[in-house]
Write a protein that binds this DNA or RNA. Structure first.
Lengths: 339, 339
DNA sequence: CGGTGGCGTGACAACGATGACCAAAGGCTC
DNA sequence: GAGCCTTTGGTCATCGTTGTCACGCCACCG
């Protein structure tokens, strides 16, 4: 049995009134007499009427949705951020459009255009490397998450990447480490650059040598980080400590260290991950909570959607180092020399 | 500087034609003369015209979006499934609306209604415990993922939960285990019931005692599973093997076993997780790949959106046991007795 | 040479809701 | 008791796009 969808005019007919009055009731307009309101409400309930959100959005000029664009949906950090934003959007009756930029500026641009064409009420973007100056001509509120965008002056919600990385190096150095390796994502991403800068600043302050062999930029996933770790450990003078600037690369480093039974090498990860506290030794991390970040971003976006003027200041969420063991190990002798 | 959005009529004006003809060009209607087409195309490019998708969707009656509803967006299993579906939807120009049912039937119903009111082109649902009979009156194509829905006869894409669990118990028993504990999610969820049934069937086949103290249903998250594991290990006669029916509960079990240094207890997880292969011993799992499941679900949904008739048969994705060590440990003596 | 058919094009209405504006009815003041 | 204001309801137009239908033009055929 095929059912014809219920329209507003069906409700109006059943309530013996006009579509406009029915519309008033549905939108909570107070200028409707009580009994009229009740009749309309009864009709809505008995017919099971649902507003056609496409029609409403067309009329209003905006759709009650927010779009979120991240590099990888499946990355636990971003997945958790998405979850938090969805939880905040739900009570507002706002739906969430999720998209990935596939780590590709061309795709990213298309995805943003697609969401704008959909007339989303707002956008939360983790920028990849696109020039975002075109957004200045657009009315849609946009909040950037986790990284500064290029080509546009806009407020961003992020953690203090530079300070976090800086702290890690000092922490490792306080346990005697001088050969501290760095695993990072591609340096086209500002976040990665900042973490590297924090690392470099601390290394310079401590007058530690910066060995190019101990720099592994461009590790976009766990597999690459794993391979680079193996290469470093095969060096004539390998690192005694490793700092991984992203959770995803940390998984690769952990894998390599465990496979080689070299868990004596000190290790700190920027970003927590599921079993970090269960491994032996447990992994010391910079806690970089996606929920907090997401909440701030959504709050700011909600303000903008409610008509507040854009705020170009950054919101910096503090980070702290959680010492669990792996980052508090002293300098280990190379296995060969240890015998 | 405020910019007026470009409309189709602006394009038509610039190309010296009617909106209808411009519309034809944009939609690739072949019945347009070549030079007209080129003039329109030039106008589109120079003005930077973008179709208003709200208006198009209203006119067409459906919106080029698919909605996906899962229990928890941040759960790596579902996050990965969402990622896969987004990747498949993108080339079709279809956007993805992501929603969570918050493990609450009332919210779930509201969320589904909300997406239907948006006129989504299709829905992929991991049902919680809602009665889905109301969907029979709805034209929107729906595919269920991972679990059978209640109250409706519909095809489902899932793994063979019963057989997987059954296999685990036989596997553990083959290493001498008789006291095999079961950690599961709430039994209101069909998936959990099926895994429990597989466990029970195997236990009965093997004539192993089913001790109520070794059943821990209702562990909705890792923390609860962790607590229940501790309770079991404190029993006068604790389990010698544990089967966790979900990745999330597995994290709790792992945490408890590691904190107590009882990694000698055999353990198998239904569902892989990030560092399962890095732990010592590495965790044996039933591989339950969300990508494969998501792909089949999206394929089926795409068929339905292309007008194919509904197919009420189930798609069962095979599972296999990956032996990594933790599930291949023989019966351990209780620590107290071992001395 | 006139009819016919295909092709390219455009005028118009429609999708379903809501904003702007107006009208009728009832209560109030003077 | 008349006029004014408030309350309540309705009419019409509109958001931007696309489906329907019809028209003008040319070529081809009998």
């Amino acid at each position: 049995m095929t059912t014809t969808p219920i329209r507003l005019r069906d409700v109006a007919l059943a309530a013996g009134t006009s579509t406009k009055t029915a519309s008033r009731v549905i939108n909570g307009d107070p200028r409707v007499a009580l009994d009229t309101r009740q009749r309309v409400q009864a009709a809505v309930d008995s017919l099971g009427y649902q507003v056609d959100l496409m029609a409403r959005s067309l009329r209003k000029g905006v759709d009650d949705t927010v779009g979120i664009i991240v590099p990888t949906i499946g990355d636990p950090f971003f997945a958790t951020a998405i979850e938090e934003i969805e939880q905040m959007a739900l009570p507002r009756g706002v739906n969430l459009l999720v998209a990935s930029n596939s780590r590709n500026p061309d795709i990213e641009r298309k995805v943003v255009d697609g969401l704008l064409a959909r007339r989303v009420a707002g956008l939360i973007i983790t920028p990849y490397s696109t020039d975002y100056s075109f957004l200045e001509r657009v009315r849609t509120p946009v909040v950037f998450l986790d990284r500064h965008p290029e080509g546009i002056d806009a407020g961003v919600v992020l953690v203090d990447d530079e300070a976090g990385a800086h702290q890690v190096v000092h922490h490792l150095a306080s346990y005697g480490h001088r050969r501290i390796a760095l695993m990072t994502d591609g340096l086209t991403i500002k976040t990665s650059r900042l973490r590297r800068e924090g690392y470099l600043r601390a290394m310079n302050e401590l007058k530690l040598p910066i060995d190019p062999d101990l720099q592994a930029p461009g590790c976009v996933d766990a597999a690459q980080a794993e391979a680079r770790t193996h290469i470093m450990l095969d060096l004539p003078s390998p690192p005694t400590a490793i700092f991984s600037a992203r959770s995803e690369t940390s998984l690769g480093v952990v894998r390599a260290l465990h496979h080689r039974r070299r868990t004596d090498i000190a290790f700190v990860s920027f970003g927590d991950f599921a079993t970090a506290d269960v491994l032996i030794p447990a992994i010391s991390v910079i806690d970089h909570d996606p929920r907090l970040l997401a909440r701030r971003a959504m709050e700011r976006l909600a303000d903008r959607m409610d008509g507040m003027a854009p705020d170009h200041t950054d919101i910096v969420v503090p980070v702290r180092l959680i010492a669990r063991g792996s980052g508090e190990q002293p300098v280990a002798e190379a296995l060969g020399a240890a015998s």
